[in-house]
Design a protein around this nucleic acid. Structure first.
Length: 219
DNA sequence: ATCCCGAGGG
DNA sequence: CCCTCTGGAT
């Protein structure tokens, strides 16, 4: 996945064309995690590290039926939590993180989820990417969530020549208007999941191949 | 064999 | 910067 050749930067105008075309292709792009509250969303996003949201959605019905709130999860038996979330992978660390996070929410925020990046990233298991997903999806705050898909597609599409997610985020912020950051994040993620795979991307089915620096190197 | 809406620690 | 944590899908 890492170590792809750097693509030529595209102009702002071309970048706008590409993202507009992708938005038309995926008009219904949205967060596919299943949740009922900001707490459940936050917990789901922490568990989504290095797995698919399909995997996460398999364990959350049981997890949230038993532990629907920060208070319930904070008081849960950690071994029971580990067993429930096992199919998502990294279950030892994730169980520790989601419970420690729930306990921090109880201790500092009366069991509610804070709505700033600064507060969110202080929570156990919450990094910039997770914080931005929660901000965008639960609170409507515009932001880029530079996950593995956004990272890969930003390189291929010539949106950024960097590999560090924080630098990519800055490049994307300069390239696109603020109000659309969240929508564009999800659109890139959908495109990455459906067509622009890490391995063997389906370039010949791609709606933006004529504008794509990566495609130009493929032929 | 490689990847999946990463984060923490060294 | 690097490494580790983990299971499931393709």
């Amino acid at each position: 996945m890492k170590g792809e050749a750097k693509m030529k930067p595209v102009t702002k105008a071309v970048a706008a064309k590409i993202i507009d075309q992708l938005c038309k292709e995926y008009p219904d792009a949205e967060c596919e995690l299943v949740y009922k509250t900001p707490f459940q969303l936050l917990t789901s996003v922490i568990m989504s590290a290095q797995t698919t949201d399909v995997q996460v959605n398999k364990v959350t019905p049981k997890l949230f039926a038993k532990y629907p709130t920060a208070k319930a999860l904070a008081e849960a038996d950690i071994e029971d939590v580990k067993q429930i979330i096992k199919p998502t992978g990294y279950y030892n660390a994730k169980a520790q993180n989601i419970q420690a996070c729930a306990q921090a929410l109880m201790a500092n925020y009366d069991g509610e989820v804070p709505s700033t990046q600064e507060e969110l990233v202080k929570l156990p298991g919450v990094g910039v990417k997770t914080a931005n997903v929660v901000l965008g999806v639960a609170f409507g705050v515009p932001g880029w969530s530079v996950d593995t898909h956004v990272q890969r597609l930003s390189g291929r599409l010539g949106f950024s020549q960097n590999t560090d997610p924080l630098k990519i985020e800055r490049d994307l912020q300069k390239l696109f208007p603020n109000k659309d950051w969240s929508k564009y994040s999800i659109t890139l993620i959908w495109h990455g999941r459906r067509l622009c795979y890490a391995n063997k991307p389906r370039c010949h089915d791609c709606p933006v191949m004529e504008l794509c620096p990566f495609y130009k190197t493929m032929r």
